[in-house]
């Protein structure tokens, strides 16, 4: 199965990644090869086979409903790129050039 540049660009949008035109070409080729490799799975008859999404032996894991102290706010903000008055600061959601 070949994958088109348009499809790769669409997936990049979903993944919140941006590629230059050259990168998009390179990734489309590589994605195509990887998809060809994984497509050999279509040879396997999986009619009626259950899916496996985890291999843990745990069934229901319950914990006591007990209040515990949360992490200190100052500490939580330690790695935030920008913060003010105890809140994480981010740019405007709406394009700043559209404000005027």
């Amino acid at each position: 199965m070949a994958i088109s540049e348009d499809k790769v660009a669409h997936v990049a949008g979903l993944a919140k990644l941006a590629f230059s035109k050259e990168e998009l070409q390179k990734f489309t080729g590589q994605m195509g090869e990887i998809i060809n490799m994984v497509q050999q799975l279509s040879d396997v008859d999986t009619t009626g086979v259950e899916v496996t999404t985890h291999v843990t032996d745990a069934v229901d894991t319950m914990r006591e409903d007990k209040a515990v102290k949360g992490t200190d706010r100052e500490l939580l903000l330690k790695n935030a790129p920008d913060h003010q008055d105890g809140f994480i600061k981010v740019p405007a959601i709406i394009d700043e050039s559209e404000e005027a």
Binding site: K16, L17, A18, N79, A80, P81, D82, I88, V90, P91, A92, I93, I94, D95, E96, S97
Partner: peptide, 18 residues
């Protein structure tokens, strides 16, 4: 947003993510 590299020269929040 909360940690890690944040791009400079961004126009809006979507830009920060991407």
């Amino acid at each position: 947003i909360r940690y890690g590299h944040r791009a400079q020269n961004v126009k809006n929040l979507e830009d920060v993510y991407v």
